[in-house]
């Protein structure tokens, strides 16, 4: 890209320093999917007030335990953590929104769903935990469940769960892991055979959506 050309051909140039465009530039790409627990809380909130015509309660998960756990965690939290960049939207509005559907597959705290694949997870570094992962089918959606013997140590950062190609030439981020278990909706149409490796990495709060290269736990499903 030729910056000089770029600035000379844009007819909007005279307005480039307008307040609106300055703010747009400063903010950069804004769109970012909320973490799954936000939808959980919305559904719980609707049920609490008995709101009519909300999402069908029959298909809804048992939320109370999750929410209580979540609130306890939040209570002890300081300024950072929790809602982390899942994936920066590279295109205008093109960020995948499937995380919003986390709960709509009717998953619950039980072990509902048909197990399609499973595997063991092993620590890549000392003092990181082992565990297991399963891919289950719930109401037509595939979900990855991760259970570890203990919570991995994120150090200064946070933990992110990925599906990788065996040679790590491609990867899909599934979301943030908080604690020792997590459940993630897999994008529709994902070929598990193509991305069979579950990887849990340590990421830094640097706003960089790419894998930080710091894998802690890994294993294969499928």
């Amino acid at each position: 890209m030729n910056d000089q050309l770029r600035t000379t051909v844009r007819p909007g140039d005279p307005e480039d320093d307008s307040r609106a465009t300055t703010l747009l530039r400063r903010a950069g790409v804004v769109e970012q999917s909320p973490p799954p627990h936000v939808w959980t809380a919305i559904v719980a909130g609707l049920r609490a007030t008995g709101a009519a015509a909300g999402p069908d309660p029959a298909g809804m998960p048992q939320l109370t335990d999750d929410l209580a756990r979540h609130r306890r965690r939040r209570a002890g939290r300081t300024g950072r953590g929790l809602a982390l960049p899942i994936l920066a939207a590279a295109a205008v509005g093109a960020l995948v929104t499937w995380t919003g559907f986390e709960l709509l597959g009717g998953a619950d705290d039980g072990r509902a769903g048909q197990v399609l694949a499973s595997g063991q997870l092993a620590p890549l570094l000392e003092e990181q935990p082992a565990g297991s992962a399963q891919v289950v089918q719930v109401d037509g959606h595939q979900r990855l469940r991760v259970e570890l013997d203990a919570a991995p140590q994120p150090g200064e950062g946070y933990l992110e769960v990925w599906l990788l190609k065996p040679d790590a030439s491609g990867m899909i981020t599934l979301g943030v892991l908080d604690g020792d278990t997590g459940e993630y909706l897999l994008p529709a149409g994902l070929e598990l055979a193509e991305f069979p490796v579950v990887d849990i990495s340590r990421e830094h709060m640097d706003g960089d959506p790419a894998h930080g290269g710091d894998s802690l736990v890994r294993g294969e499903v499928g």
Partner: peptide
């Protein structure tokens, strides 16, 4: 459809924790 926009704007405005 709109939660990425709503959440993204909230993150910019109040930070990741309160954005939720």
């Amino acid at each position: 459809r709109w939660s990425p926009l709503v959440h993204g704007l909230a993150r910019r405005a109040v930070g990741p924790v309160e954005a939720d």
